[in-house]
Design a protein around this nucleic acid. Sequence first.
DNA 1: GTAATTGCAAATACTTTGCCACGTA
DNA 2: TACGTGGCAAAGTATTTGCAATTAC
Lengths: 141, 141
Amino acid sequence: MQQVVTLAVARCRELGLRRTKALEELLATLVEAERPMTLAELSASPRLTELCDKATVYRLLQRLTEHGILRRLGLHERAAYFTLLQPGKHSDYLICTGCGKIEAIKAPCPVHELEDEIREKTRYRGLYHELEFFGICPRCA
Amino acid sequence: MQQVVTLAVARCRELGLRRTKALEELLATLVEAERPMTLAELSASPRLTELCDKATVYRLLQRLTEHGILRRLGLHERAAYFTLLQPGKHSDYLICTGCGKIEAIKAPCPVHELEDEIREKTRYRGLYHELEFFGICPRCA
DNA sequence: GTAATTGCAAATACTTTGCCACGTA
DNA sequence: TACGTGGCAAAGTATTTGCAATTAC
């Protein structure tokens, strides 16, 4: 866990980003949450709310996404969700359209073959995918 | 094509919606485009731009989505894209993150089995999925 | 005639940016 | 010291709503 944060910070340093408190806490928050989070959620989270301005979180998210440390996802209500990219890791998500709960799916992702096929046929560069399942969770139903 | 529009209008009528020019043209536009469209795109499209206000298109999209005639997708830059739901039809999409081009993928969708598995295990109601591939198209690269 | 639908304009809700101060390297 | 970062507040953008007028049925 802490290991993952340390590694991510190191990657940031290599990319020329400065090691600031806001950067560390942002990454730690995302790692701890174990799920994608929005700007609003992050900015209001315990580690960040007192520490820095929302605009700072916003710009951090931009910077980290540009540098490939984070990825921005659509997920729920078309809000921007951010998640830490970990080499070799991929998640699909299950989202309750009632309460907005988001959880990562543990089952293996069945689309890598199709992704390869598309990569070859279409010659798109930097291809990746997002797979989301939507429904009403038992609690909302 | 015209057939699909007629059918969709009929479904709307059955649901108690009134047959207005705006409704017909909106559905026709969506069917002709053969791809999901945003509120802005729809409102600015030839068939609708002169015909009705953006707020009307907005409210039509809301109503049609609530009634299950349309579905709202995430796709690109977290804008809301709308697509006509046709019973038995499902599309996955390939999106260029450079120019925003969106195309439906013709290959069969490989996630239905996983969807069934999730439906059973989690007891979510009304489960469906979205699968998007993102990359840079040859023209943008 | 009645209730759904629409236009226009105003109100939200976020996202994004400018500018100067600050802190890391 | 220099340049990436951060705070605060303003600007921008798209979505959403109120209300009176209109239209489908």
